[in-house]
Nucleic acid binder design. Sequence first.
DNA 1: TTCCTTGCAAAACTTTTGCATTAAA
DNA 2: TTTAATGCAAAAGTTTTGCAAGGAA
Lengths: 143, 143
Amino acid sequence: MNDGIPTSADDAALARRLLARGIRPTGQRLRIARMLLRRPQHLSAEQITESLRREGEQVSKATVYNTLNLFAAHGLIRQLSVDGTRAWFDSNVEPHYHFHDETTGAIQDVPLPDVEFSRLPAPPEGMEYAGVDLVIRLRPRSR
Amino acid sequence: MNDGIPTSADDAALARRLLARGIRPTGQRLRIARMLLRRPQHLSAEQITESLRREGEQVSKATVYNTLNLFAAHGLIRQLSVDGTRAWFDSNVEPHYHFHDETTGAIQDVPLPDVEFSRLPAPPEGMEYAGVDLVIRLRPRSR
DNA sequence: TTCCTTGCAAAACTTTTGCATTAAA
DNA sequence: TTTAATGCAAAAGTTTTGCAAGGAA
C-alpha cells in the first residue's frame, strides 16, 4: 500500500478537508495536517515538529502550536488532556475514549461501542454537555 | 460550626491520616494537608501556596509541589488532568467523576452513583484497570 | 550524628506572544 | 496592495531539581 507518501490527489483532498472547516490550506498547514491526519494517532506538538524536520521540512514550533490550536478550534482534530505533562492531539474527532498506560504513557483508542453508559448525570442548570472524556488508566497486571 | 479553624485534635487526626499512608507528618505537610483536605475540593499548587501565605505561613512552592506529589503517590490525594493548563489536586480519593465548565474552568464533582456503565472494554493483554477518569465537559446551554 | 525536610534559586519544559519577514489572495 | 501566515526569539507559566541550611529522630 501507500503509507506516508502523499500524492497530489491526497493533498487536494486534504485541502478540501481544511476548507470545509473554514481553514485556509496553506503550505505549513497542509504539512502539519498530513503528518497528523495520515492515520488515527495521538501526537504531541514536539513529535510533529520533529517528524517534519526529519523529513527535511523547516517549521517553527510556534507555527506548529498555533496551527494545532487552530485545527482544534475548528474541530479538525481533538486536543486531549490525559496526563499533565503536555497536550496530545488526536487525529480522530469521532466520539471515542482512551486507554492510558501509566507505565509507558502510551495512549490507545477505545472504540465508542466498547463503552456504554446506563446512567449519566443531568448537566447543571443552564449548562449542556459539550463532550464526554473517558480515560481508563492501565497498569501491568499484578499477577 | 467550625470551618477552617483547626484544633489540635484535628491536627492529631490529620497526622494519623498521613502516618496511615506512610507519610511522616511534618509541619509543612500538615499545613498543606490541612488546607487541601479541609473539605472536598480541587486546588492547584499555586492556590495552596497563596492561601497558606495569606494565612501568614511561609512555604516555598517547591515544597508545595513536592508535598502534593508525595501525597498523590501515597494515595492521600488525587491528581487530575482536566485541562492542559495545570495540575489540579482533589482532596477526595473516593471513586467519583467530574464536570468541567469549559467557559469558566470550574471543576465540580459527579458522585459515583450518578454514572453507571453497562459496558466497559476488557483491558489489553497483561494489563489491568488502575482507574477510570470521566470528565463531562460543559458549556452554557445554547438556548 | 545522621537522615530527612525545607527554602531558594535556577533550570527544565511546554506553550504563547511580539514583531519582522514572507507568502498568498 | 492588502491581508494573512510564518519564523524566530523572547516571554510566560508550570513544575522539577540542586544544593545549602534547618529540623527531627
